[in-house]
Every structure is written in structure tokens, then in C-alpha cells.
């Protein structure tokens, strides 16, 4: 699709216009972290963040969400599907890839209507990264670029100018709300392309995956009984942080809540995680992943193999969030992939 040029000074008026119809979330710096938070007039936007701390999934699949309201007397129930129009501005490609993946998983088999309703009302505006998080390895996970999944994609090509690639009709409409904007020249597009190459080059200089990522599923398939699972998981606290923070993890629990008068109630879902002790345990005490190492292994198997078997792409986009969030410093997919690859190659 087409590409345009937008100048920094045009942004506030665009944002104001968008805010009339959408909730608008933009990257902001909060202490030591970057968060995607609601835009207020005059707010500074952090174009050079390295990674947004809150996983983007929380805007589509919140950590707490009501599924049903029910009446205990009549036993009537009705679905709750809440969705407000929203714009997620400034999303890096690896996070868009994670959303694209969730889109597929939530659509497979039974459509997740709550996710779908939110997704349908969500506008994604991508942003070319200007910095790489210390723990990131997205450039090795086919996540440095996305061909779809955005309505607009922004690349900062200078102190005050952006090349904006249009990804959807709605994206174009939003770009033109204050009137048409200039079409990007070949030279401007070339600058954007070079910006992309530069950041990818930079990303490739750190946290190197030592083998082609297409081999990860094969490596994982041979590693189910590797000693690394026991070795590494010894320090695991089963806290689930690596699940909750991950943009591609989507497991959940469902529970009921009743009001004080015992008349009405609701059924809601909350994020759950396969690293938590009782995730696979059943009434009577049996736990299908009783050992820490079994749960630890399952997370990596999901990322490196099972999701690949389902979708033909890896379940990890290399954002590096889990590495940062793990209190035991053991939740590093890159380290595990490299380690297992060396192990498997050595055996040959």
C-alpha cells in the first residue's frame, strides 16, 4: 500500500482527532520502564523506547475479564462481551507478530468472541524500533518485520518526520482525518528502509541465535529428555511471571463470583500460566506436571515446537520480556535454544 510523510508537529492534532472516537494508547516512560498508556493532551511520546513493559496482549485479552452475568434465582445468564474502540500506537514489529499469532490461535476451532470483539475494534499503529532492549533477540525470530497486522506503520526518519506506511483502509482514513498528507518520496522511503536495516543490524549484534530458527522445532523435538530442564529449573519459583509477561502466552482460568446478597454473579476469566504449580492438577490430587522441570520444559516446548506444529511459526517472538521478569534469571528462551542446539549437534 501507499506510504506518506507526517511531521511531528502534525501529531497532536491527529491524536486529538482520533481521541474523539478511540481510546488512544501511546508509549510513555515511567520511571525505569516504558509503558503503553492512555494519551493525554500535551503528553510526551516515547518514540525511542526499547520494549514496552506491559505485554500488548493485555489490550486484547485483559488479565481479568467477565464472560457471563448470571442470576442465581432464575438461572438465566447472558454473555458479556466488552469492547471499546482503541488505537494502540507505537507497537514494535515483534509485538505485532505476537498479536498476529494470537489472532490465529483465538480464531482456531471455537472463535474466542471476547478477544475477537476487542480485536475488531482495535487499530494497530506499528513503529520501527530505534533501540533494542538488552534482552531482546527478535531479529533472530522472524519478528523484525511484519507484512500485515497493522493499520499504519510509522518509521521515524529524522528528528521531526515519519514515513507512514498504510496497512488498511481504516488506517488511511485515520491518517487523513485532518486532510490528506504528503505522499512519501522515493528518497524518504529509502531513508525508512535504511532505518530498518540499521536497527536490524544492531539487533543482530547482540543475543545471537547460533543456528537458523527453522531448526528450533527439530532441536526441541530431540530434547524432551534433556538434562537441561532439571538443571535449569532447580531455581524456578513457579511464579508464572514468564507466562504473564509473554505477549504470546494466552492460558486462562475461569471462576465464578457472587454478590453479597447471593442473587447475582458473574463468571470471569483471568490469566493463568503453565509454570504455576497447580496448572495441570486435578481433583483428588493428581498433577500431570507435578515436577518443576516438567512445567519449565512445557513452556519452552510451547514456544519452540507445539505452536510451530499448529501454525508453522514459532511461539516466541524474541521480545526478551521473560528474561527481564524472571526473578531466578532462568527464563531465557535464547539461551535454552542455543544450549539445546549445541547439545543435539554434539550428539550427532
Amino acid at each position: 500500500m501507499s506510504a506518506h510523510v507526517v511531521y511531528l508537529e502534525q501529531l497532536p492534532s491527529l491524536f486529538e482527532k482520533w481521541k474523539e472516537k478511540f481510546k488512544l494508547f501511546v508509549p510513555q516512560k515511567k520511571g525505569d520502564y516504558y509503558l503503553l498508556q492512555e494519551y493525554e493532551r500535551g503528553q510526551e511520546i516515547c518514540f525511542d523506547y526499547d520494549v514496552i513493559y506491559n505485554p500488548i496482549k493485555s489490550f486484547l485479552f485483559p488479565s481479568y475479564e467477565t464472560l457471563l452475568d448470571f442470576d442465581l434465582k432464575t438461572y438465566a445468564s447472558k454473555p458479556v462481551v466488552d469492547a471499546e474502540p482503541q488505537i494502540l500506537f507505537g507497537i514494535h514489529p515483534y509485538d505485532i507478530k505476537a498479536i498476529n499469532q494470537l489472532d490465529q490461535l483465538m480464531e482456531m476451532g471455537s472463535v474466542d468472541v471476547n478477544y475477537r470483539a476487542r480485536r475488531d475494534k482495535t487499530v494497530i499503529m506499528g513503529l520501527e524500533p530505534l533501540r533494542v532492549a538488552k534482552t531482546a533477540f527478535w531479529s533472530f525470530m522472524d519478528a523484525e518485520k511484519v507484512d500485515f497486522g497493522f493499520d499504519l506503520f510509522w518509521t521515524k526518519i529524522g528528528p521531526s518526520a515519519f514515513v507512514v506506511e498504510v496497512g488498511s483502509v481504516l488506517g488511511e482514513e485515520l491518517l487523513f482525518v485532518n486532510g490528506k498528507v504528503d505522499v512519501a518520496t522515493a528518497a524518504e522511503k529509502e531513508v525508512a528502509r535504511r532505518k530498518h536495516q540499521e536497527i536490524v543490524k544492531k539487533a543482530k549484534m547482540q543475543n545471537v541465535l547460533k543456528f537458523p530458527n527453522t531448526d528450533i522445532p527439530k532441536v526441541m523435538a530431540k530434547s524432551f529428555n534433556s538434562y537441561v530442564w532439571i538443571e535449569k529449573s532447580r531455581k524456578c519459583l513457579s511464579c508464572g511471571s514468564c507466562n504473564f509477561i509473554c505477549p504470546t502466552c494466552y492460558c486462562f482460568d475461569i471462576q465464578d463470583e457472587v454478590d453479597d446478597l447471593l442473587k447475582k454473579g458473574k463468571r470471569y476469566r483471568t490469566w493463568d500460566g503453565c509454570m504455576l504449580r497447580s496448572f495441570a492438577s486435578i481433583a483428588g490430587g493428581h498433577n500431570f506436571r507435578k515436577q518443576v522441570f516438567e512445567r519449565y520444559r512445557h513452556r519452552y516446548m510451547r514456544k519452540g515446537r507445539y505452536i510451530y506444529d499448529l501454525l508453522g511459526e514459532l511461539g516466541c517472538v524474541g521480545c526478551g520480556r521473560c528474561i527481564q521478569s524472571c526473578p531466578a534469571r532462568i527464563a531465557n528462551p535464547l539461551e535454552i535454544f542455543n544450549f539445546l542446539w549445541e547439545d543435539v549437534s554434539y550428539e550427532k
Binding site: 490461535l105 483465538m106 482456531m108 476451532g109 471455537s110 474466542d112 494466552y250 492460558c251 486462562f252 482460568d253 475461569i254 476469566r269 493463568d272 503453565c274 496448572f279 495441570a280 512445557h298 510451547r302 507445539y306
Partner: peptide
């Protein structure tokens, strides 16, 4: 429904 992950 094949979504919540518990039964994997």
C-alpha cells in the same frame, strides 16, 4: 474449547 491451555 481448546483455548485455556489446562488440558494440554
Amino acid at each position: 474449547l481448546g483455548k485455556c491451555g489446562h488440558c494440554q
